[in-house]
């Protein structure tokens, strides 16, 4: 898997130049606001799903490196995927965080978080945006 150097580069890049950052004013998008109760991470995630496909994911807010980088990377990974595929990717990401078996190939750059489980106090940072995405998909048609 990635060396520490490459992991650092991936996270730094996604923190300094996050992908899909900035919310849009478009009524078709659904929005979830997730704020951590233990730290300052506070982000909003928007999603547009059409015909069962994740057409777009946007996010914005206040967050640490782990929060922004993880949200940025997973938003890239699930864009263009079907709801089922996206939920599967998110599920594999949580498996990795929970130290269970997971599909490395599916997670691509998100493998940079493969040791996040060792930092108990940062797990929330690395899941807060992803949980918002899961919530958006789960509740989209409700």
């Amino acid at each position: 898997m990635f060396s520490d150097d490459i992991k650092r580069t991936i996270l730094l890049e996604h923190y300094q130049n996050p992908h899909n950052k900035g919310l849009v004013e478009d009524d078709r998008y659904h929005l979830v606001h997730n704020a951590s109760d233990s730290c300052i991470d506070d982000i909003k995630v928007q999603m547009l799903i059409e015909d069962g496909i994740i057409k777009d994911v946007r996010f914005d807010g206040v967050g640490c490196t782990i929060c922004f980088a993880s949200t940025s990377i997973i938003s890239d990974l699930i864009k263009g995927k079907s709801k089922e595929e996206a939920l599967h990717i998110i599920g594999e990401y949580f498996n990795m965080i929970d130290e269970k078996e997971y599909d490395e190939d599916l997670l691509e750059e998100a493998n940079a978080f493969n040791t996040l489980s060792k930092q108990a106090n940062r797990i929330k940072c690395g899941t807060i945006g992803i949980k918002a995405m899961k919530e958006l998909i789960d509740n989209y048609d409700k």
Binding site: K7, R8, L12, T65, F113, L116
Partner: peptide, 10 residues
């Protein structure tokens, strides 16, 4: 540095 901070987490 920011890079070292990230290094401390991963």
């Amino acid at each position: 540095t920011l890079e070292k901070c990230i290094g401390a987490i991963i």
